Amino acid sequence: MADLPDTRDDLVPRCAGTTAAKAPPNKRDTLRRITGAARREFAARGLADARVDDIAQAAGVTKQLVYHYFRSKEALFACVLDESSAQAMATLLEHELDHLAPREALRALLDNMLRPYHDGELRALAQEGIRYHESHTTPRNSFTGLAPQLKEKMRATLARGVASGDFRADVDADMLLAMAALATTSAYVNRYTVATLAGLDMADGADADTWRRFAVAFVLAAVERERGTLDPLTRAGR
């Protein structure tokens, strides 16, 4: 697995009241330090057990300054989630697929959906995020804002595959995208089920790679007009 570049301290929260572009450099640096420390604290302890005092100390600021920018611990957590989602989505969307054959383009899209979850902190935040969104009203955020572009990538890839005769013509692209996301990335936020039923530890690089190969082959098999044997649905994969 290729490592992701370490950009965790580069978060500039757009949800802190002032956009990064308008904020002076010293404020941008302060916001980066606060959200970077918050990301580490939330990933390590979860939302319930994270302490704003510890976040402030790690960021080298006062607790009062944290609350100056973020009205509550939950607001800070929502901001960290939004910025992490924005980074992951932006990275996913920047990958060009049109030069690839439809089948390989779909494989690349699925692989790139999984890639951010190589980051252990993101995996932990994703688990916390699911619990948070289930119990809070979620305002418009980076994920919802960028989702239409991701859906368009899937629609275009599927349409090219239908035109080339590689993919079935009776597949709903948006449903496929949702199912593909669940079939691939959900393993990282439901590690207990995967460990119990498949004996895979998603924190282990080799096991995570086994899951990636199987999950991608599973989605490909669902859309192929003629099922081949290029990607066997086994642990070994191709």
Rank of each mutant, 00 (worst) to 15 (best):
residue 2 A to N: 12
residue 5 P to Y: 13
residue 10 D to H: 10
residue 11 L to N: 01
residue 12 V to Y: 10
residue 13 P to E: 02
residue 13 P to R: 00
residue 19 T to V: 10
residue 19 T to E: 09
residue 22 K to N: 13
residue 24 P to E: 05
residue 25 P to Q: 09
residue 30 T to G: 01
residue 30 T to E: 12
residue 30 T to C: 11
residue 33 R to N: 09
residue 39 R to W: 07
residue 44 A to E: 12
residue 45 R to M: 04
residue 46 G to T: 10
residue 46 G to R: 10
residue 46 G to M: 06
residue 50 A to Q: 02
residue 51 R to V: 05
residue 53 D to E: 15
residue 54 D to W: 11
residue 56 A to C: 04
residue 56 A to E: 07
residue 58 A to H: 07
residue 59 A to R: 10
residue 60 G to F: 01
residue 60 G to D: 12
residue 61 V to N: 02
residue 62 T to N: 11
residue 65 L to G: 03
residue 70 F to H: 10
residue 72 S to K: 14
residue 74 E to K: 15
residue 75 A to D: 14
residue 75 A to N: 05
residue 79 C to F: 00
residue 80 V to F: 08
residue 82 D to S: 05
residue 87 Q to E: 15
residue 89 M to W: 02
residue 89 M to D: 01
residue 91 T to G: 10
residue 93 L to V: 08
residue 99 H to P: 03
residue 99 H to F: 13
residue 101 A to P: 06
residue 105 A to E: 03
residue 106 L to E: 10
residue 108 A to C: 14
residue 108 A to F: 03
residue 109 L to Y: 01
residue 115 R to T: 11
residue 116 P to A: 03
residue 118 H to V: 05
residue 119 D to P: 00
residue 119 D to S: 01
residue 119 D to R: 04
residue 122 L to P: 00
residue 122 L to Q: 00
residue 129 G to H: 00
residue 130 I to V: 13
residue 130 I to P: 03
residue 133 H to E: 08
residue 133 H to C: 09
residue 134 E to D: 09
residue 135 S to I: 12
residue 135 S to N: 11
residue 135 S to K: 13
residue 135 S to C: 09
residue 139 P to H: 09
residue 142 S to I: 05
residue 143 F to V: 08
residue 145 G to V: 09
residue 146 L to M: 12
residue 147 A to Q: 02
residue 149 Q to K: 14
residue 157 T to D: 07
residue 160 R to D: 06
residue 162 V to R: 13
residue 163 A to C: 04
residue 163 A to I: 00
residue 172 D to F: 06
residue 174 D to W: 06
residue 177 L to N: 01
residue 179 M to G: 08
residue 180 A to S: 14
residue 193 T to P: 03
residue 196 T to I: 07
residue 201 D to W: 06
residue 203 A to K: 08
residue 204 D to A: 05
residue 205 G to K: 15
residue 206 A to C: 01
residue 208 A to I: 03
residue 209 D to F: 11
residue 210 T to W: 08
residue 213 R to P: 01
residue 213 R to L: 03
residue 219 V to W: 01
residue 220 L to W: 07
residue 223 V to S: 00
residue 226 E to I: 09
residue 226 E to W: 14
residue 230 L to Y: 15
residue 232 P to S: 09
residue 238 R to Q: 15
